[in-house]
Design a protein around this nucleic acid. Structure first.
Lengths: 201, 201
DNA sequence: GGCCGACTTGGACGATTGCCCAAAACTATA
DNA sequence: TATAGTTTTGGGCAATCGTCCAAGTCGGCC
């Protein structure tokens, strides 16, 4: 069989995915053209539509791949933290590496935006976000003391993940925003003593 | 003078701004074309470049106008809340009106995204966000009991505003996300008793 | 009535777009 | 070497884009 041909095709596909992810961050989701991707990947313009049905198809595959890897690494290392309060502190430090204008941040933001208009992408991104929310909630339940009110762990995880995305967003507007200075309120949020009764729904 | 002509021009300009804001939400920042705006506003295609130097110029003016009005109304009514904890609860209720896929939400998200690539827009949006952050912080200082640690009020405001944006973002992915269920953690964050010492920097 | 400035019209320009396809190139098998 | 299967090439297509501009309309002022 043409095994070597298939191999060659697979690496080309990977190069296209990599080039697409980089370009989404550089020029924006709507600014990426098939010719750009092909040139960046070092292949002929037509090759894009051989490996992918359409340009949105390529962009969705490229962005979700990167996003899933990023979020899994972040939540994985967060789950290693001994308790919620130091975990939050660690998270802010980790987040400080993203200026809001670096490729990784931009790719994520672009994806959120495009998801509003591409049902396919929306579903995939929703799955990724729900995944990390569940991981964070599980970690909070395990390392915190939410035994009595598991719903609070879910809620705290939802707010935490949303705050992370929001902070990355705001960091893009204001690179001088000092994330580590925000530890106080976040620690207060995940602290397990001093919860009032009957708070939730 | 041609006073009536100037009046006619002003209303045309307003119609263009309104049409542009609506279209940004409908088809996305990058999806808006001058011809679309002109048609929606009921004028000839060329009129856009008579009233605005370029298409980005028009989009920036349209989006910042709407965003400033929205945020000023929201923070203004938040500042009327008697204390932080009920204020947070009220805020979540208010936020529930935004599904994440409604025009207002989409416009905001589109703006954040475009801001990453348009320095002009980025500066204006930064100003708007910094404004609302300052308003929230002032309200927290006034109605909460942050007298001893004013930095915590700023930090809580920053996290709160970021969480709001993040939640709107996440709501676009998951319309079933129940915002009112998240009151617990947010109340814990803005509560003024039980702060540990030396938390911050 | 004639003049003048502000505003509006609708088409033209060159550039770029996503997608397509016939032909060429390459590799493993017969 | 011939064949079959896969991948790559590079140009072509119709459509859309932002921007511009010469001509036209409109209202108040002399």
């Amino acid at each position: 069989m043409a095994e070597a041909s298939a191999d060659r095709g697979r690496t080309t596909r990977q190069r296209l995915l990599g080039a697409a992810a980089a370009l989404i961050a550089e020029v924006g989701w709507g600014g990426v053209s098939t010719r750009m991707v092909a040139e960046r990947a070092g292949v002929a313009p037509g090759v894009v539509h051989y490996h992918f049905a359409s340009l949105p198809d390529l962009l969705i595959a490229a962005s979700t791949g990167v996003a899933r890897a990023m979020l899994e690494e972040l939540t994985g290392r967060l789950a290693e933290q001994p308790d919620p309060e130091t975990g939050v502190e660690w998270l802010l430090g980790e987040l400080s590496r993203y200026t809001g204008t670096d490729p990784a941040s931009l790719l994520i933001v672009e994806m959120y935006l495009a998801a509003a208009r591409l049902p396919d992408l929306r579903d995939r991104l929703h799955e990724i976000v729900a995944d990390s929310r569940a991981r964070v909630a599980a970690w909070l339940r395990e390392r915190g003391h939410y035994a009595g009110r598991p719903g609070d762990a879910e809620a705290a995880a939802a707010v935490l993940v949303a705050a992370v995305d929001g902070l990355v967003l705001h960091r893009g507007l204001d690179p001088d925003l000092d994330l580590t200075a925000l530890a106080g309120p976040l620690r207060a949020m995940v602290r397990t003593d001093g919860h009032e009764e009957g708070g939730g729904t």
